[in-house]
Design a protein around this nucleic acid. Structure first.
Lengths: 125, 125
DNA sequence: GTAAGCGCTTACCTTTAGGTAACTACTCAC
DNA sequence: GTGAGTAGTTACCTAAAGGTAAGCGCTTAC
């Protein structure tokens, strides 16, 4: 029979770790727009106005701020092409692509969640 | 040779869909505390003060608000046991568990992200 | 020359998130 | 009766998020 010591069980340690991991992840991915923006640019590189059009609801001010933030954190790159007038294209970095699984799971969950909400709406009426 | 019609490609439709899914998911999972709270309660049911202790940094007010919100959205249940004094336990519902993969991926990403940050700190000094 | 588009920036304002601290009603232990 | 703990609530406040609207410097199209 194993002696149970008055220490946190390995189990508990694991739980605490995953909690810490999620907290750390959310620290950089906070806010309404970071993940949608990364997803959009992982799907394809885009120009400022194209992004603003795709994420309907985001204002120019917020988009500019979020893009700067994501660039600082190495999620996207701002490329300037010397056409006249200059063409500016935002593209996702390799590091953005490490979020592929997260985004995949989130999208799958979002889809089934929408279904569930629809169901419960129907039941109400 | 295939004729290219002036319609969104199936590809584009898929992209737009996953964007919409992610937006919908984030709509219910917004804020700093929802996902950590769900994770904590999926790991084990807990009482108010236990949660507050585990998620150090959350205030009683915010915790109470978030718990109400999560209960409304069917992620958790508030159980009252008629001991004296009453014992109140929050537990995750089955619906919370549909987030298992999302939380798993987020935790994995958060872990490697922390590593990456540590690396770049070292390089700086 | 006038209008429109691009990629923003600025000033201004409202909304929300979220923290602090005090307090409640109840119970138990000392 | 004093202190501590449980499960919050309340009032007050700050900071951050985020929206609106206007404008800027540039260029092309009409």
């Amino acid at each position: 029979m194993k002696v149970i010591k008055n220490e946190p069980l390995p189990n508990k340690v694991e739980c605490a770790n995953s909690l810490k991991n999620v907290l750390d992840a959310l620290y950089v991915l906070n806010g309404k727009w970071k993940l949608p923006l990364i997803l959009s640019l992982v799907q394809s590189s885009k120009r400022f106005n194209e992004i603003q059009h795709e994420l309907s609801g985001i204002s120019a001010k917020v988009l500019a701020k979020e893009l700067k933030d994501l660039e600082l954190n190495d999620f996207i790159t701002r490329k300037v092409y010397p056409t006249t007038p200059v063409t500016i294209v935002y593209e996702a970095t390799g590091y953005s692509r490490t979020l592929k699984n997260v985004l995949g799971e989130l999208s799958a969950w979002g889809e089934q969640h929408r279904e569930k909400i629809k169901q419960s709406m129907r039941r109400q009426s």
